[in-house]
């Protein structure tokens, strides 16, 4: 069929033309078309929201559309591997975070080298919050620790699959206070939002989640936040002490959101992107949007970021040894 040959020839010609155009891309002309920003979570979670705020600002900064594309599933492996296998041309980026980088370093079934990617920059991070039920007998941090120590088998904590920083915040809490994590009852949930509901309803004793997940329920009095990780208070959770204030500076689990690219992204493009990301972190509307969901701007780029993530991974490894398995 001659027509098929003709169509095929036209397709090949088009492919050739576009590949030439791609090769000519330099930092000066980048970006010249829309960028795909892959979020390895379903829409609506904390990382997704932060990534959307970031994408919006990045789009203004770079002058091209930045499309948020959700590729959820399989402990973020699907999203990450789709970015890894894309061309390193700066048009496919990953909304990276601990769950899609350092934690993956602990999972035995990740089919690629987790560190083999171009870490461009992180732009936001936020603390976790530890919560107990408003009607529970525990009034504060010390009460919970005491109860959990007395009877770890009867102590129920929320658990979201072991591949999130919230779970590591829980593990860190248990480790810090000398509670045997392997004896505590871990109750499965799909998201930190569900954990918060269960704690508020009194279904489970204790939960951890990104700070924003407790904003609403803490206002009803059904949920009692007992501590924030790290040393910075959160405006919407006024009166909740930080772990540092309570004398536990070791409880510093934070979650972060940034930009990564496939391995082999040219250096000049990486620099240009990192500068753009750093710029948006100072944008007031972005800061406001981040603040509203319990995050604050925190810029770290290039090798500093990689070193930071490596360090994070080693800490996660130590924590997960407590429960005998990775994740």
């Amino acid at each position: 069929m001659p027509a098929f040959t003709r169509v095929a020839a036209a397709v090949c010609a088009a492919a050739l033309l576009t590949s030439c155009a791609a090769a000519a891309e330099t930092a000066a002309s980048y970006p010249s078309r829309s960028i795909d920003y892959v979020v390895p979570f379903a829409a609506g979670g904390s990382t997704d929201i932060a990534a959307r705020a970031g994408a919006e600002a990045l789009s203004d900064e770079l002058g091209v559309p930045v499309n948020v594309i959700n590729k959820p599933g399989a402990d973020q492996i699907i999203g990450v591997s789709s970015v890894r296998s894309a061309e390193p041309d700066g048009y496919t980026l990953l909304a990276d975070g601990a769950g899609s980088s350092s934690i993956q370093g602990l999972l035995p079934y990740v089919p690629y080298d987790w560190a083999d990617r171009t870490f461009v920059a992180k732009f936001a991070e936020g603390p976790h919050v530890y919560v107990v039920g408003g009607d529970s007998p525990y009034r504060d941090y010390a009460d919970v620790v005491e109860a959990a120590k007395r009877n770890p088998e009867g102590f129920t904590v929320g658990w979201i699959g072991g591949s999130s920083t919230s779970d590591y915040a829980t593990l860190q809490f248990l480790a810090e206070n000398g509670i045997d994590a392997a004896r505590v009852q871990r109750v499965p949930f799909r998201s930190s939002g569900e954990v918060m509901r269960a704690v508020a309803a009194g279904d489970i004793d204790f939960g951890a989640g990104g700070a924003s997940s407790a904003f609403s329920l803490s206002k009803t009095g059904k949920l009692r936040p007992i501590a924030l990780t790290g040393d910075k208070p959160v405006g919407k959770l006024a009166g909740v002490p930080t772990a540092a204030e309570l004398g536990h500076p070791g409880l510093d689990m934070r979650y972060w959101v940034g930009v990564s690219a496939p391995p082999g992204l040219p250096r000049d493009l990486t620099t240009k992107l990192a500068d753009a990301v750093a710029a948006i972190a100072e944008d007031e509307t972005v800061v406001d949007a981040l603040d509203a969901v319990g995050l604050s701007p925190a810029v770290l780029t290039g090798e500093d970021l990689r070193a930071d993530i490596d360090h994070e991974k080693r800490r996660f490894a130590t924590l997960s040894e407590q429960i005998g398995v990775a994740g």
Binding site: G44, G193, A200, F215, S216, K219
Partner: peptide
């Protein structure tokens, strides 16, 4: 009334509210 999203759509609407500084809840 409680800030509990019953599903993904509600989680997204809740996020939108929060980005505008409105925290869903009794208020």
């Amino acid at each position: 009334s409680l800030g509990i999203p019953t599903g993904p759509t509600m989680a997204l609407i809740m996020a939108a509210l929060m980005v505008y500084g409105v925290v869903p809840g009794p208020t």
